[in-house]
């Protein structure tokens, strides 16, 4: 199907969202809570764009690009004045929430905001509550974290109380996906620490680099149905071995 984004005619498939199509066509829309690995959620409200349609009798409105399904003949403006104003407002609010986040500072600057016009949060952290960590942990981790509380007091956390309540497998997916660097971890030769918990490490049989935590590998094995013996090497060594085997077979 055809639609128009900022005056440019583009092609799209049923089931796609505006954001995907725009990105494919090199049109940039800021998006903080979106990641191709997880389902879209529409939490940050930064990817607002204005849409209208020839058949809508002049009606137009703002929607989130990450969640709005494309349709034939849709007319999208990604950067008109109204859109920029609303986005600037959202960024201003995020900057008040996380004044120390470099990511938010940089984005805000692009919208002409150096300093938030609102009252900054007392004792701010870097979490913008985009929810990516929770979604990725549900998808490839162990559903070990969740939002706790509601409204302005909402935080992301492992369950309360003792460590043995944590289901975290130390896979680091959450820390990797976090756009602001709020989730931190440490790792030395012996241990990896995340969410206040220490994990042992498993090393590659061949090259000896750390390939993960025992809990993590067990989880992968259970999920994929592959035997634990599959998880004894790092990806590179496994690929090298497979390539060698492949070479033996064909030549």
């Amino acid at each position: 199907m055809q639609l128009s984004i900022d005056g440019k005619s583009v092609t799209a498939q049923t089931g796609e969202y505006i954001l995907q199509v725009a990105q494919r066509n090199g049109i940039e829309i800021p998006a903080l809570c979106h990641h191709p690995a997880v389902e879209p959620s529409g939490a940050c409200r930064l990817c607002m764009v204005e849409i209208t349609h020839a058949d809508w009798g002049g009606w137009k409105g703002l929607v989130t690009a990450c969640l709005y399904p494309v349709q034939e003949g849709l007319i999208v403006s990604t950067a008109n004045e109204k859109v920029r104003k609303v986005r600037a407002g959202v960024l201003d609010l995020l900057l008040a929430r996380c004044p120390e986040s470099e990511l938010i500072q940089n984005l805000s600057r692009q919208y002409g905001i150096e300093k938030t016009s609102f009252i900054p949060r007392p004792e701010p952290d870097l979490c913008i509550l985009c929810g990516l960590c929770v979604r990725i942990c549900e998808k490839i981790g162990a559903s070990a974290i969740s939002t706790i509380g509601r409204g302005i007091d909402k935080i992301v956390s492992v369950p309360y109380e003792t460590e043995e309540n944590y289901a975290c497998i130390g896979c680091l997916a959450c820390a990797t996906i976090c756009p602001t660097g709020e989730i931190t971890f440490t790792q030395d030769e012996q241990t990896r620490s995340i969410w206040g918990r220490n994990f042992e490490l498993v090393y590659c049989e061949d090259c000896g680099i750390a390939i993960g935590t025992p809990e993590q590998l067990k989880h992968y094995s259970e999920r994929s149905g592959l035997d634990m013996s599959y998880f004894t090497k790092c990806d590179r060594c496994r690929n090298r071995e497979a390539a060698a085997r492949f070479a033996r077979i064909t030549f």
């Binding site: 959620s41 609010l93 509550l129 929810g131 409204g151 302005i152």
Partner: peptide, 18 residues
């Protein structure tokens, strides 16, 4: 409304506080 906002999205969660 501030007490009842679910806290999922920025404008409502942060906006109501402000």
């Amino acid at each position: 409304l501030q007490e009842e906002s679910c806290g999922k999205c920025t404008p409502c969660r942060e906006g109501l506080r402000q």
